[in-house]
Computed example of a mutant assay.
Amino acid sequence: MKSALRKTIESQVRSFTVQELREPHFDPNWHFHPHYQLFTVMEGTGTRFIGDSITPFEPGDTVFLGPNVPHLWRSDAWYFEEGANLTTHGIVLYFQEDFLGKEFFDRPEMHPIGQLLEESKRGIQYVGTARQRIRTELQELLHLDGLQRILRLLALLDELAHSVEGAPITSYGYVNTHKVSETERMQKVHDYVMQNFRQEIRLTEVASLAGMSEAAFCRYFKTRANKTFTDFVSEIRIGQSCKLLLEDKWSISQIAYESGFDTLSNFNRHFKRITGQTPREYKKAYTIPV
């Protein structure tokens, strides 16, 4: 596995970068970079980690991230299986704040976009028509060049700056406290939990994996992730259960055990605490009648 790192994405011939990603699975490494990032999932499912937020993702997931916000779109386990013959597809746009000059976004006319850039430091998730506009524009930008390319990006940013269909992703006041030298340690923890959340996870084993005592690891993790390790594991499990509920293949009790909970009551308690709904309420709210 590649080491987690601080990514740098530069183009030698263009002011900003737009890439189409088609791979058997999305990049499994927890990382951050000094660029703003606009990303949409066209194909693929899994769990999305952004700062201190953990949530399932599916086609349509569309976010705008500010610089150095740690993130990871972790494809579901079956994307990594040998012979799976599955594909993920996404479109991503990267730019730095000074791609049009150091003071461009400080000008009065750029104030709404400047405010958008500030809000993106918590990450912004888009829904509705704004999400569809982003997806359409990213597809168009793949094929544009020259001045028209820059004008289209500015128009899109201005549109998003006035949109009411974006919501913050990370908790209020979230700040990236990860150091480049420490991201590999967090990557090991992420990978271990994703591979083992269906069974009992012993704090002793995880702390040993991180090269720490249990007490030191608990302090370290809460500082870096803005939540306890126990809450982190619970959110991973609830994210898995949300997907299974919408698939409508198993009973709620089966889903509870498949997601790593030892009792149905424990599952229901954690589900209500994290989602604000019971499993049945969640399923009813997100299932579209046929």
Rank of each mutant, 00 (worst) to 15 (best):
R133P: 14
E140K: 06
D262M: 11
H71G: 01
A167S: 08
I113S: 05
R22Y: 06
T55I: 08
D106E: 14
E281S: 15
V206M: 09
R14F: 11
E200W: 07
H178F: 10
E159V: 13
F80I: 01
R135N: 02
T287N: 01
P59A: 15
P108E: 15
F16A: 12
D27M: 06
Q125W: 03
T278N: 06
I238D: 00
T45K: 01
L264N: 05
R74C: 06
G90L: 00
I54H: 04
S234R: 04
R122K: 15
T263S: 15
E119Y: 02
L156T: 10
K272W: 01
L244I: 02
E10I: 09
K121T: 11
K284D: 04
Y36Q: 00
G114V: 08
S213V: 03
P168E: 00
G60A: 01
L157I: 04
D262W: 07
G211Y: 11
Y79S: 00
N68C: 08
S15I: 10
F57H: 11
Q139H: 12
H270P: 00
A256N: 03
Q115V: 13
Q19L: 13
Q125M: 09
L151F: 07
Q19C: 06
S163F: 01
S213T: 04
R152E: 04
N268G: 02
P59G: 13
E258H: 12
K227S: 10
E20I: 07
A216D: 15
S251V: 00
F32T: 01
V18G: 11
S253D: 13
S251R: 05
V193G: 12
I169C: 00
W30H: 06
Q187T: 14
S181K: 14
F104I: 10
E82M: 04
Y172K: 10
G166T: 03
S251Q: 03
V13Q: 13
Q199Y: 10
T278E: 07
F80Q: 05
F105G: 14
Q187V: 08
R280G: 10
S75R: 03
R198V: 13
K243N: 04
I274H: 06
